[in-house]
Design a protein around this nucleic acid. Sequence first.
DNA 1: GCCTCAGATGCAATTGGGTTGCGCGCGTGG
DNA 2: CCACGCGCGCAACCCAATTGCATCTGAGGC
Lengths: 142, 142
Amino acid sequence: MPAPRSRSSAAERAIRAAGERLTAPRAAVLETLLAARQALTHHEIEQALATRLAVDRVTVYRVLDWLVSLGLAHRLAGEDRTWRFLATHGEAHAAHAHFMCSRCGRTVCLDEVAVPPAVKVPRGFEPSHVELNVKGVCATCR
Amino acid sequence: MPAPRSRSSAAERAIRAAGERLTAPRAAVLETLLAARQALTHHEIEQALATRLAVDRVTVYRVLDWLVSLGLAHRLAGEDRTWRFLATHGEAHAAHAHFMCSRCGRTVCLDEVAVPPAVKVPRGFEPSHVELNVKGVCATCR
DNA sequence: GCCTCAGATGCAATTGGGTTGCGCGCGTGG
DNA sequence: CCACGCGCGCAACCCAATTGCATCTGAGGC
């Protein structure tokens, strides 16, 4: 049960809780990610921000890197060779599946699909996490 | 039981069998892929070719695209936003897992890991194939 | 409330993987 | 051996992402 719209947004609270400096670009980017129902490209984030706050392209990149390093966001490499970002909604979802549309690049989480928690890898290799990606065509592209 | 080095290489035979024009760059690229024990970047392929045949950068890209469209090769998007290619050794391996090193990008097949053949996706979505990628650090990078 | 400064931002230039356009060359079928 | 259409090489281009640097600012200390 989220508090009935406190003065500080969930994004701001998360940044404060992490003991990091709270700035307008950071809050805006994280809010955008938290509100998204699918993985967003850098470009999509920039567009979403445009209506509320002018943020430099480079700053968006840096904020995203920073969110990833803090564990507040995920970075996904898509088929179109662009990064897509996803907020980690508190859940430390170690592993979860994604659906990636080969036509439009749209990427959504598949929470119902189980991802093998551990896999057998060659001697000396050290796995950090497992990604299960389903490629195909999304509903709107069909 | 491969034939004891016939006049035509496996690559040449595969191209002929596909009813496609056989050219030096095509044979050389496919031979390189078939000999590789891991996924190769465009750059790695170019380097491997350099010792035996001068092939233009663009030609390598086009040959690779062509191999993929013929189903003779796979294309993988890596974390470093570069394509990596893998020969499909005859096996129509619909789904198989890969290990990707976050440090050097090295990508190898994990034949022992089972990939779920079918997954549940949202209504209207049409999955074509499933990719299971294990991210981590490889033996040489540790 | 004001000062300070490490760290965040904005701007411009750069990198690098990948792609495209086009004329020439060559593999293949006749 | 010839003709033709596809594949090749060259050069220019595209664009996501990165880097360098000067300026600005959030947040703790006074």
